[in-house]
Simulated assay, not measured.
Amino acid sequence: MPSFEEKLIRAIRTKREAEGLSIRALSAAIGVSFSTLARIERGEGLPDNNSKIRLMEWLGPEAEDAGLGFDKVAFVHFRAGKNVRSSTVRTLLKAAECLRHTLATGAHWTGQQDVDDNASPPSASLSKEELEQAAEKFRADLGLSQNEPIDSLRIEVDGVKVVPIGKTNCLDAQTVKQLRGIAGGEWSAMTIPLDADNENWVVLLNDGHTIERQRVTLLEEYWHILLGHKLTKIARIAEAYGRTYDRTEEHDAYYLASAVLLPRAAMADAVRKNRPSDEIARSFGTSSELVDYRIKRLGLWREHIGKQIKLARD
């Protein structure tokens, strides 16, 4: 009997060829890399669970016709590593269900929905200047100057409640210890809608991370909400969990979080003054890695590291 993966690969190839799509065109449509899809179709590798979800959503009704299926589990914003273990996902989903039950305002709403309800076209990334302007307006709305640091853990957003993992009653002490410790490197935050209209949210924050990491993580979750990004779909396939992932939306949310914490004008001034990354990081309450990311994204890295250029003489 063909395995799940063999049936999936066969169904994908059949539909792709019937619709006259190249592997590259399918890659662009579903967000799985061309090289990964090519290897899968050649039988040189198997899709991971995250890719399986994307492929099965693209198959639509053809998935069931091919004897394929997956359990619809939850729709959330999920800040976690690509290869997060299923045991960690199960625990976080348990916490999400509890938080919904405790905080949700919509009667009988579970946070689950049909795939079609969450479907939307691929995201269009904001331009660099649009991202910078959005971050500057955000800081202006908070009454901050361009040289003033901000502790994002003190920001309040209407309709959003922040619950550190250590302050929830939804998990026992041993589980919290595990999510902060052994599993702590696998996830940063999970943002859960509390009503069907996505007007009220709760952010479950990993407070086992450094305060600097928590600041950028929380801001990133705020931006997912404020930009109206699609919810991540988490589903169980063959006893393991996978999730959808929108690279464009993740990029924009992270970029905006870094731009709010490390404003453009202040970074340019720091580079002009030859301030090292760790010194800038201390001034703004971030990690030096975030400072380096910000300077590179602003195109100031050469100046920051002092790399000289010149024309060779004849």
Rank of each mutant, 00 (worst) to 15 (best):
K7Q: 14
I9T: 15
R13W: 00
A18C: 02
L26G: 12
G31W: 00
F34K: 15
T36C: 04
L37C: 09
R39W: 00
R39S: 12
E41S: 06
G43N: 03
P47F: 02
D48R: 08
N49L: 04
I53M: 08
E62K: 06
D71V: 09
V73Q: 10
F75N: 08
A80N: 05
G81K: 10
V84A: 11
R85T: 03
R85C: 00
S87R: 08
R90Q: 10
L92P: 13
K94G: 13
L99W: 01
A107I: 00
D114T: 14
D117G: 12
D117F: 02
P122M: 01
A135I: 07
A135E: 11
F138T: 04
R139Q: 05
E148F: 00
I150W: 04
S152R: 00
S152D: 00
R154A: 14
V157D: 10
V162E: 12
I165V: 15
A173I: 12
K177G: 08
Q178A: 12
Q178G: 02
E186D: 11
W187D: 12
A189V: 01
M190F: 05
T191N: 07
N206K: 10
N206Q: 01
R213D: 11
R213L: 13
Q214Y: 01
Y222G: 05
L227I: 04
G228K: 02
I234W: 02
T244N: 06
D246Y: 06
T248N: 05
E249A: 13
Y254F: 12
Y254D: 11
Y254A: 09
L256E: 12
A265N: 14
A265W: 02
M267G: 03
D269F: 05
A270N: 08
V271T: 05
P276D: 03
S277D: 11
D278G: 02
L290I: 08
R294L: 01
K296V: 10
G299I: 07
G299Y: 02
W301E: 09
W301M: 11
W301F: 11
I305L: 10
I305R: 09
G306A: 05
Q308T: 01
Q308E: 01
K310F: 14
D314C: 02
